[in-house]
Design a protein around this nucleic acid. Structure first.
Lengths: 204, 204
DNA sequence: CGCGGAAGCTAGCAGTCGTTTGTTTGCCGC
DNA sequence: GCGGCAAACAAACGACTGCTAGCTTCCGCG
């Protein structure tokens, strides 16, 4: 069990990952130097490299648990029964709840995606990202099939609307001077409104 | 008329701005060095500074025309008459059309917003960004008032859904392996679907 | 013809970046 | 008490960053 998978007993490594996660979320991946991370950990710059191969690997260890969890949640919704529209609603709620719990990861994925998709070490994260999109497509297709979702929709466009809306609603970076919605409304009311927005739209 | 405002006769300066715009859009602001820009212009690194005070000023000259144009379009819609829901639809169409015409600027604003909002020279762009959000809020408020938009909506949330959806639908960076929607559907069909998504939602 | 000014070149500064190498420390099991 | 080993230190590497100062080239205008 010395493989790449093990979790218990939060090692030093894990502490560093948490610290780096917050730094990346605050200042962005590119703008956060390995020296910044080291300093925040009470380490010298070189010492990071007894825990990680590279800066990119730190990023991977930040994002990977979240993105696997994300597709797991989506798959769970698909595995359960129900009509398409109801599954879609359930999926939105679970994803919103999960993302709200992982604001830092969301922020990093949102703004530093070019770094993620560009790095060779990180294409596993790109695969996860595409899986997420495919799972959204699947709920939508089911909903169209059983007649509970609008047949005229463009699924690729709808998926982008869904994911962009969820990210945008939870983002605190771009709307810095504006209210933090998840705090202002509470998580349940927020999820309700995201569902309403995406499934019912803005008209009466 | 030697002030900061003048346009005609595309000077060398303007050519450089266009080249820099495309580089920023491809690789991001931080990842594009002044040497990259100079090389793409057939210049040596230092020569840029006989045209610009700083790298940030180049960014400003890229974004400013677009963002002023954006709020102008929005204001034009508000100045015209009509019910709230119809104005909202008109605003969406005009913003989508404008943004589709300025994919590079959108991409830069989207991914490099932290650099924009962080730089001292660039807070004019932040002001424009907030104006845009306020103008969206105004259409929504009118629509609620005249009963054409859902009174239960959370306007701040709706604004984020709108802007995020427009950005997400036009983005080619995050969905690199996926179809380019504006090419696949054509601009009119794309705008139709964005309007439908935002005002009618995904349900039947 | 001469000159002013824009545009570009040359060379380099001062700093930061991610990373590497070699060494030292301190703890755990034997 | 001693070997082993992970964690951390110390010091630096080469490359790259935005930017500056001073010089040259050249075109248009008087």
């Amino acid at each position: 069990m010395t493989s790449t998978e093990q979790a218990r007993a939060p090692s030093r490594r894990d502490e560093i990952v948490v610290i780096a996660k917050n730094l990346f979320a605050e200042k962005g991946y590119a703008a956060t130097s390995t020296r910044d991370i080291a300093e925040a950990c009470g380490l010298l710059p070189g010492s990071l490299y007894s825990h990680f191969r590279s800066k990119a690997q730190i990023l991977e260890m930040i994002i990977a648990p979240f993105s696997t969890r994300l597709v797991d949640e989506q798959r769970a919704v698909l595995a359960a029964g129900g009509r398409g529209a109801d599954r879609l609603e359930a999926m939105i709620r679970r994803v919103v709840a999960l993302c709200a719990d992982h604001a830092a990861e969301i922020r990093i994925l949102h703004y530093d995606w070019p770094h993620v998709s560009g790095a060779d070490d990180l294409h596993a994260l790109v695969v996860h990202g595409n899986e997420t999109l495919d799972l959204w497509l699947q709920v939508l297709a089911q909903g169209v099939e059983d007649g509970s979702l609008r047949a005229t929709m463009q699924p690729e466009l709808a998926v982008r609307a869904i994911t962009s809306t969820i990210h945008g609603v939870l983002d605190r970076q771009r709307y810095g001077t504006r209210p933090d919605l998840s705090r202002a409304l509470g998580l349940d009311a927020l999820a309700d409104e995201v569902v309403a927005q995406l499934t019912r739209g803005l008209r009466v």
